[in-house]
Amino acid sequence: MAPLSYSVPQRILHWGMALLIFFNLIFSDGIEHWKRLVRRGQPITPDDISSANIHAYVGIAILVLAVVRLVLRHVQGVPQAPAEEPAILSLVAKITHGLLYLLLILMPLTGIGAYYFANGTAGDIHADVLKVVLWALLVAHVAGALVHQFYWKTDVLARMTYGVKKPASP
């Protein structure tokens, strides 16, 4: 039987990872500056490396936490899609979630390839392709949650925030 809500560890990981993901998407100046210096063959200072390392370490944390989330998802399960959600949109939600998990693994791996192994192709895929796809999926994910909350008036947001309590028996 599927749970009514995500577990507390699943919710903490979800929101913690959301903060880390947005941090790396919004504050990527350090790694981008490092990348420009490397491409131009200019000297890299310890401060440049420190700034780039912050982005890299946050990305590695996202990778590790994504694996933990997948394990928890497998062990603890997830709530079923609300009945109010049309079947086609339920499929879209499953595909979006699957692609988000895939990106939460591929983005750090391509970032590691670019930063630690000087693989320019991995860096281009990371910054020019996967980053754009991630932004699009995040917009779709947030839009889907808002549609559930305000149009269908389901408990989807509650399941990932404070949790849904078992309905009272009659």
Rank of each mutant, 00 (worst) to 15 (best):
V38M: 02
T96R: 04
F22S: 09
V64C: 09
S90C: 14
F117C: 03
I44S: 09
G59R: 02
L106A: 11
L37T: 00
V71W: 06
L72P: 11
I21F: 04
G111W: 07
I31A: 10
H55M: 09
H55Q: 13
A87V: 14
A56H: 05
I26S: 02
N24S: 04
P46A: 09
R69G: 04
L89S: 15
A83E: 14
Y101K: 03
D48I: 04
P43Q: 05
D29C: 07
V92M: 07
L89Q: 13
Y115K: 01
N119V: 08
L106Y: 01
D47W: 08
I44N: 08
V38Y: 12
L106T: 02
A87R: 15
I54M: 06
Q76F: 12
I26D: 08
L100Q: 12
Q80W: 05
Y57L: 15
R73T: 13
E84F: 15
S51P: 02
E32L: 10
R69E: 09
M107Y: 10
I49P: 01
A114K: 05
V68R: 10
L91V: 08
L63N: 01
R36E: 05
L102W: 02
G77V: 00
A87H: 15
I54W: 00
L89I: 15
Q42E: 13
F22K: 03
W34M: 05
V67Y: 08
P79V: 11
A52M: 03
P108M: 00
I60Q: 01
G30C: 08
V58L: 04
R73P: 15
S28F: 14
I105S: 04
A87M: 14
R36P: 13
V92N: 06
I112V: 07
Q80M: 06
N24L: 02
F117Q: 05
H74D: 12
V38T: 00
G77R: 01
V38Q: 12
Y57N: 15
H55K: 10
N24I: 03
F22Y: 01
F27V: 14
S90N: 13
A114Y: 13
P86E: 00
T45I: 15
F117L: 07
S50N: 02
K35A: 10
V75Q: 11
P43K: 00
E85S: 14
Q42N: 02
G41V: 07
H97A: 10
S90Q: 13
F117A: 01
G111C: 00
V64F: 00
V38N: 06
I44K: 00
L103W: 00
P43G: 00
W34L: 01
Y115H: 03
I105P: 09
L89V: 15
I95K: 11
I105D: 04
L109Q: 02
I105G: 03
N119E: 03
A81P: 15
M107K: 01
I95N: 12
R73I: 10
D29L: 05
T45C: 13
R40L: 08
V75R: 01
L25W: 03
I88C: 10
F23C: 07
R73K: 02
S50R: 07
